[in-house]
Simulated assay, not measured.
Amino acid sequence: MPYVNIRITDQATADQKAELIAGVTNLLKDVLGKNPATTVVVIEEFSTDNWGIGGESVTARRKRDTQR
């Protein structure tokens, strides 16, 4: 039973999440021959305040990048 955990910082719409779930499920079926009926896909959403890259939060990075 494949288990895929997708972690993102931005809020995705319900349609986008459905597309991710279907796409990952189909990819596992096509590439590895996995049964879609037993494939589990979990999407976790994090606040950009709770995700850091290079010693700073994603919120701070985005704020800095938009000020350039």
Rank of each mutant, 00 (worst) to 15 (best):
N26T: 14
G23M: 09
V40I: 09
Q67N: 07
E45H: 09
D65R: 06
V31L: 00
V42Q: 07
F46L: 13
F46G: 04
G23T: 10
P36H: 10
M1C: 11
M1P: 15
D30H: 00
V31G: 00
V40Q: 15
G23N: 04
T39C: 15
T13D: 02
I6P: 03
K29S: 05
V58K: 09
A60D: 06
I53R: 10
D30I: 00
F46E: 04
R62S: 11
I53G: 07
Q16K: 14
R7C: 09
G55H: 05
M1F: 08
N50W: 08
K63H: 11
M1G: 12
V24M: 14
A37R: 12
R64H: 14
T38M: 10
L28V: 10
V42R: 12
T66D: 11
V58S: 01
I43R: 05
A60P: 06
T48L: 01
N5Y: 12
T66G: 05
L32G: 01
T66R: 08
A12F: 02
D30F: 00
D49W: 09
T13W: 10
G23L: 06
L28D: 08
T48G: 07
T9F: 02
E44F: 07
N35Q: 10
Y3K: 08
D15C: 01
V41D: 04
T39R: 14
G54A: 12
R62E: 11
L32K: 02
I6T: 05
G55D: 05
L32H: 02
A60N: 12
E45A: 09
R7H: 09
T13L: 03
Q11D: 06
